[in-house]
Every structure is written in structure tokens, then in C-alpha cells.
Design a protein around this nucleic acid. Sequence first.
RNA 1: GGGUAGGUGGCGGAGUAGCUAACGCACCAGACUGUAAAUCUGGCGGCCACUGGCCUUCGGGGGUGCAAGUCCCUCCCUACCCA
Length: 402
Amino acid sequence: MKNKNIHPKIKEVLIKGVGNIYPNRELLERKLISGQKIRLYCGYDPSTPSLHLGHMATLLKLSQFQELGHEVIMLIGDFTGMIGDPTDKLNVRKKLTRKEVLSNAKNYKKLASNILNFTGANPVKVFYNSRWNDKLSFLNLIEMASNFTVQQIIIRDMFQERIKRKKPIYLHEFLYPLAQAYDSVAMDVNLEIGGEDQTFNMLCGRDLLRTLKNKEKFVLTLKLLTDPIGKKMGKTEGNIIPMDAKPEEMFGKIMSWPDSIVGIGFELLTKLSMEDIKEIFKMIEKKKINLRDAKARLAKEIVAICHNKKLAIRAGNEFDLIFREKKLPTKIPEIKIDKKNIGILELLVKVKLASSKSDAKRLVLQKGVKIGGEIQTDWKKNIEIKREMVIQVGKRKFAKIA
RNA sequence: GGGUAGGUGGCGGAGUAGCUAACGCACCAGACUGUAAAUCUGGCGGCCACUGGCCUUCGGGGGUGCAAGUCCCUCCCUACCCA
């Protein structure tokens, strides 16, 4: 630790992609510079089978700490995940079985292993929070709850909004932050990492740890992938990019991000240093690089981490091929059709490019359907089935006759 | 336990008896483009060889009416107020 390079690395870990540090940056910096090894974690509720790019940002931050030699814990929230966090009463919360949780968790570890090192001299540890939360009694819960006031919890934006809209707030939702807070106590950590949206929950953990163990836990929040107006990418279903999305799909979805979030994207989702990132944006300002190309670089970096370099380059080339040169992709799903002659609508449904005949008809009328490179306008047309015939819907959906 | 207000498409949210369930978000297609961004245009339950027709759908079930998301009965669910 006498290495002179250690300081820039510490600076980097506390700045790149970082939103806030509680209680403040200086204290944490001093602790890291002192050479003390700290124990830190980030929690992941296994509610879905896959991690997405939002999680990826936290994993990259964890890996920075791992490289600095700190003790990193990846916490699987199998308990908190089972209580669920029903942000909307209409979303019936998924009751996950132990089996599903384990299967999701297994996948989480696999995805995280692209970024974190689970073997070697300083391996990342994986914990499950059911290990301690299962054992808590009602008495324990009451005691824990007595450290918080209703006002503290009800002041949260989401609750205020629901009160305003007269939407239900369930009691267990109030308790959710406590369950998460107890993780910090059970693992006795020095630092927790999470997205800015998790600030409240993480600070609850900080309070609880101080009360119960008289220990100061740091909280480091990461900026969210948003444009300057605060529009979150990945908030809605369609925008979420799973870490195991196919390289081409991942690349394309990143290319569709608004330009305004490219900068934060580099900070959160790549291994480039702040210096390199600043350099890229200087080049853009001087018009030496097109912003479009910077975005492609970003997409490549991300795909390279989630898959590998070779696939990243291929995905980039593929993207150019289809969208710049407007040619056919190299791989097209092939579908077998038994008939020799078929109505165009039926064909579109059969090759799964339309969900119904009505849908197919709409697509044809909107000039969204190409067969063998020709735009189709007559939805009554009969199509003669030939092998290798390519059917295209919109700009990016293809099928080939096997 | 008593009262009040509600339950509408993937989501938010109008509509309180009559032709087409408004509008917004999300989504899909087209135009434009460095881009699958932004913007603009159109679409956005299903079926029918169809440029019109048929069917389905407003928490569940039943009823009244020529006609029901809308009225009545009943059941289920939720919020708020009172106890």
C-alpha cells in the first residue's frame, strides 16, 4: 500500500458515477487513505431472473473497491425480495418460492462474475439476508421499529404521493426499510452502495447501526441513468436492458438512448477512467468525434463487459450494417412454412412478426412490411413461398423461410 | 360495527343510458436523421378475401330497458371518515 498510484484510485472510486456520500466524502476518503480495509456491500432483491444495467453500475463500483483490496459482499435479498416492495397495489407482488430465489440468485452470481471476482485472494462473498431475517422474532421487530418514527418514514416522496392520490399504503411497506436496515447490522459493514433511489433505505440502515452498535456506516449513492431533466432510462419495461441481453439487442438499445445521458453512461457503466471520459467529451466539443460515435463506443464498452470484446465489435458492425447501410442482418430466424401459397396476413402471423391478422393488416397498410426487399401494400395478396425468402417488419424485425 | 367514495384497455385517467370508451404515458409503423434519440404523421381488442361488416371488452354474477361502462339487486375488493 505504499504505491503512489493509490491516491488517484481512491479519488476515482469516490467520484466516478457517485451521487452522494453520507455523512460526507472527506471522512470516507480519509478512512480509505489510512489504508484500513473496510467491509462493504450492495443488496440485490432477486425478484426478476436477471440483473439489468442499473445493477451493473453498482457491480462496477463494488469491483473498484475489490481492486483496492476491500472486503466486498454481494447480498442477495431473498428475504426482502419475498416480502416484496409493492410500489403499486395493482402489481400483485410475486410470491417467490425458495427454488425461484435460488435459481435467480445463481444467475445473478453468474452475471456479476463478468465484473466481480468470486475467486482468488480477495473473493467477493455472497450472502443471503434470509439467513438472519428469518430468525427475527416479533419482539425483535418491535424493538427495531422503536428506533424509527412514523413521520420519518411517511415523509418519503412515494408515500406522500400515495397519500395525495389516496392510494393504499400497506403496513409491511413501512417495515420494508427496516428489513433492509437490519442487513447492515447483521453484516456489520462500514459502507453500503446503491442507486440514489435507495438513499432512504440505506440511511435507515445507517441510523440503526449507529443506535444498536454505535458504529458509523458510510453510504455511497450512485447517480441514476437519467437525462438532465430527470427522465429515467430503464424505468419502464421496454427500456430496461438486462445484463444478459443479446449483444446486438443490447447495442441497439443503448444506441437509442438520448444523447444527454451518454456522459453519465460512461461514468456508470464502463471501466474507463474519469480522465479518459473527459478526454472523449473534449474531443466531442472540438468536433473531432461525433456524439453518435461516442455513443457507439459506450455501447461497445458495455457489451464488452457483459459479453466480450469480440461480440461487442460484431454487434457494432451489425448495427452499422442494418441501420447505416440498411442491409440485412447476418443472422435471421428461420421458420418453416408447409404451404406453397399463403395469404400475406397469415404468413406474417405464422412467422411471428405480427400478433394477429388485424395487427398484420395494420402493418401492411402502414407500409411496414417488406418481402424479398419489396414493400407490400396489398394485404389481400397471396404470397408464393420460396426458400430463403426474407420477410421484414419495420426496420428491425426479420424472418426467413426455411 | 356505521357511513362515504370508488373498481374502466399494459399503466394513468375521462365518460353516469343512445352511434366511435375522450385524453396522456408506454408500445408499433411511416417520414426525417449520425442513431432504434428528438420532432412530425398515422396506428394501438379480435375475426371475415374487407376499404365495409361481424363479434368481444369497463371487478364477478343476475336483472330492468328498444338500448347498460352508465339504472336496480347481489357478491368480491380498495380507500377515506366515524366508532
